[in-house]
């Protein structure tokens, strides 16, 4: 089926209009961020010169170097823990028979849909009681729990899609469960694991409510939390704020630009995360 030239042109125009509408708010932030401090910006007028001073100020005085380190550490921890635990659990759900399998699987699925609001309040009191609020653990463990629902579901689906005959053959070769998992399934699951890792990293990085509740000390703030507080203190310093916002968004956006196919495929596969 061919598309006529007129139709193709019309389609491009429509796509371009929506692409521009999508980009305007984000480009506005970027433009503000590179505008020298104190210079008034009007519309999309280009700044008189490119200035990176706002970034330096946000990075040093705004404390975003610390917030970024916190976010990286938490996201890395959540990705590693989720990857390991959901591989194990997904393997059991996909290949083993045991009493309570479907009930337990539904319990995991429940975690996929639960909003943070439904458990964060008692969780805060629990973690405070255990002396864990204002530590990495208060971010790492609950976010791992949240990601596990998706991760287990994802890995189980991947393992189930694996040809049964290959598994059978490996078993006939005398491969036990451990060999089967770590030598056969996991090496083949690298792309699935990578997509899961990307999505979990993004969700963890962008999470706001949980750090807002768990963290009161400045030293443990994650990047989005830092931005929200910075927002409160610098409402009038638009450029500085824009630089801070850019710093917060950039790591994930850069990952996305390089791996967008994987991001989109993962999120469109019906990834409903609670």
């Amino acid at each position: 089926m061919r598309i006529s030239r007129a139709e193709a042109t019309a389609n491009y125009v429509l796509l371009a209009v929506f692409a521009v509408l999508t980009l305007v708010p984000l480009l506005g932030v970027l433009l503000s961020a590179v505008t020298p401090e104190g210079e008034l910006r009007v519309g999309f007028e280009l700044p008189s010169r490119l200035s990176l001073g706002n970034f330096a100020q946000a990075w040093e005085q705004g404390g975003f170097s610390r917030y970024l380190v916190n976010s990286v550490l938490v996201a890395a921890g959540v990705v590693l823990l989720t990857g390991l635990l959901s591989t194990l659990a997904g393997f059991a759900f996909a290949t083993m028979r045991f009493p309570g399998r479907s009930v337990l699987f539904y319990v995991v699925l429940l975690g996929l849909l639960l909003p943070v609001e439904s458990f964060v309040i008692p969780l805060y009191h629990d973690l405070r009681g255990w002396g864990l609020t204002d530590t990495y653990w208060s971010l790492l463990l609950p976010q791992t729990a949240q990601s596990l629902a998706f991760g287990t579901f994802w890995m189980r689906n991947y393992f189930r899609s694996f040809p049964v005959s290959v598994l059978e053959a490996a078993r006939l070769d005398g491969a036990g469960d451990r060999v089967l998992l770590w030598r056969v399934l996991v090496p083949n699951a690298r792309p699935a694991l990578a997509t899961m890792g990307l999505l979990v990293a993004m969700w963890t990085w962008n999470e706001f409510l949980l750090p807002l509740v768990m963290i009161s000390g400045e030293g443990w703030r994650t990047a989005p939390l830092g931005l929200a507080f910075f927002q409160g203190q610098h409402t009038t310093q638009v450029q500085l704020l824009a630089a801070a916002a850019t710093i917060v968004a950039l790591p994930i956006v850069v990952l996305y630009l390089f791996l967008q196919r994987r991001f989109i495929a993962g999120m469109l596969s019906g990834a409903v995360k609670g």
């Binding site: 980009l23 706001f208 916002a245 991001f263």
Partner: peptide
């Protein structure tokens, strides 16, 4: 597709900040 999908990956706090402006 990559452009249209971008708002999905930008932190909501950043999205909020840009719309505040």
């Amino acid at each position: 597709r990559a452009v249209l999908f971008l708002p999905q990956v930008v932190a909501s706090v950043v999205v909020a900040t840009s719309w505040l402006a």
